[in-house]
């Protein structure tokens, strides 16, 4: 007989730097590998999404106003915090049926991915910007700027690495995001929110919801104050894709589909950062 009763963790959402429960009051059961219930997760509603967009919009400008160096440092800080809580995440992945060594590798790859993108924070502008030799007496340059607020689906597989691999290329470039965690196994996402919360990422830059993709996809792709939608499903049903694209047409939303089959391989790509960037070209006369 156990000496004490274990304290079970309540999984909430992460919005605007706080951990609210869903406004709907709804929850769904999260099962482990043996179909046992391991936790309840919030079944977020469109209103939760709406609130998250408000938080993301509010944070985006400030996040983008941080220096690139600072954003890089903050991403690095996330990696540091994750490193410190490696064991916790490995343990959290195990109930899903992930073998210890695989879980460990996923956490380590996640940390390395964060560090990889942290390094890009002050470099992608140089690689993907340009000075343009125009024929008139003007100084002309083009630099990437964040698209704004991005909604995204985390992949179902690799609930931690997938999530972080989706979030990081978005936020490294000064965007804020609302990400719907892996539906089947959302718990590491919420634990990751705790890491974000303790690692200098301003509230609202990353907002993590849990719930059903089918319920939320319409809202996440149609919201008029969301500038882009990112998903990585390896296979997409044509009708489903059509629904996403049609919603995107409402406000000329950028739809970024980057299919990934296997997250255990490194999926980092600076070109992915540019998918959430707009090129701004500035002209200025050159004279005395």
């Amino acid at each position: 007989m156990a000496d004490r009763i274990n304290v079970l963790k309540t999984y909430k959402t992460y919005v605007g730097g706080k951990f609210p429960r869903t406004e709907s009051g709804r929850h769904y059961k999260v099962y482990g590998k043996d179909e046992e219930v391991i936790a309840n997760a919030c079944q977020c509603s469109r209103k939760d999404f709406r609130d998250a967009v408000v938080a993301a919009r509010g944070a985006q400008n400030g996040w983008n106003s941080r220096s690139a160096y600072n954003r890089g440092q903050i991403l690095y800080r996330i990696a540091e915090m994750l490193e410190g809580r490696k064991t916790q995440f490995v343990e959290e992945l195990k109930p899903l049926g992930i073998h210890h060594r695989t879980a460990q590798k996923e956490v380590e790859t996640t940390i390395d991915t964060l560090i990889y993108y942290a390094g890009w924070a002050d470099k992608y502008q140089q690689v993907f910007g340009s000075i343009n030799p125009v024929a008139s007496n003007h100084f002309n340059f083009s630099i990437p700027e964040p698209t704004g607020v991005v909604s995204a689906f985390a992949p179902e597989e690799s609930p931690l690495l997938g999530l972080v691999s989706v979030i990081t290329p978005i936020i490294v470039g000064g965007n804020s995001c609302i990400i719907l965690a892996s539906q089947r196994y959302p718990l590491p996402a919420i634990s990751f929110a705790e890491v974000l919360h303790s690692s200098d990422v301003p509230g609202g830059v990353v907002n993590i919801l849990t719930g059903f993709k089918e319920e939320l996809v319409d809202h996440m792709t149609s919201h008029m104050d969301v500038n882009a939608f990112f998903f990585t499903d390896p296979k997409v049903n044509k009708e489903y894709r059509k629904q996403i694209d049609e919603n995107a047409a409402l406000n000329v939303k950028r739809i970024v589909h980057h299919p990934v089959n296997d997250w255990s391989q490194h999926q980092e790509d600076p070109y992915l950062v540019t998918k959430f960037q707009e090129i701004k070209t500035t002209w200025h006369p050159v004279g005395f």
Binding site: N137, H138, P285
Partner: peptide, 8 residues
């Protein structure tokens, strides 16, 4: 006064 503007 902007030189380029004047000349244009």
């Amino acid at each position: 006064i902007d030189q380029v503007g004047v000349e244009q």
